[in-house]
Write a protein that binds this DNA or RNA. Structure first.
Length: 103
DNA sequence: GTTGTGACTACCA
DNA sequence: ATGGTAGCCACAA
């Protein structure tokens, strides 16, 4: 069976993001082979079950910020998870160096 | 089939 | 730098 849905590919790519690094939605989509599907990446992560082991928190938007509204629950949760991995926020933003991981 | 939506991005004033 | 707008495309109703 070769049901390879976009969801599954996205899951794999997100799962491949190294500890302590991050990727943008657009980059994840591109790595999947679908450069214009940044939004679908977000949709897919949103549908994740609660206890998923997928490191969804390592995915941020193109500005290097968390995609949720600042101060929201989801925002805080993601930021906490990232900090736990040693990721440092500067002015609510992530340094671009973190995006440079070899696929 | 059409319409509205979104954890996005690029472009422009 | 900051805010608004248009483009994007899979999905749900």
């Amino acid at each position: 069976m070769v049901t390879s849905s976009l969801k599954e590919i996205i899951w794999q790519v997100v799962a491949a993001i190294p500890y302590g690094k991050v990727a943008t939605y657009g980059q994840v989509a591109k790595l999947c082979g679908f450069p214009r599907h940044a939004r679908y990446v977000g949709m897919t992560l949103r549908d994740l079950p609660n206890g998923s082991t997928l490191p969804w928190h390592r995915v941020v938007n193109a500005k290097g910020e968390i995609a949720f509204p600042r101060g929201s629950d989801a925002y805080t949760r993601q930021q906490t998870r990232l900090r736990a991995e040693g990721v440092v926020f500067k002015h609510d933003r992530l340094p671009l160096d973190l995006y440079r991981w070899a696929p």
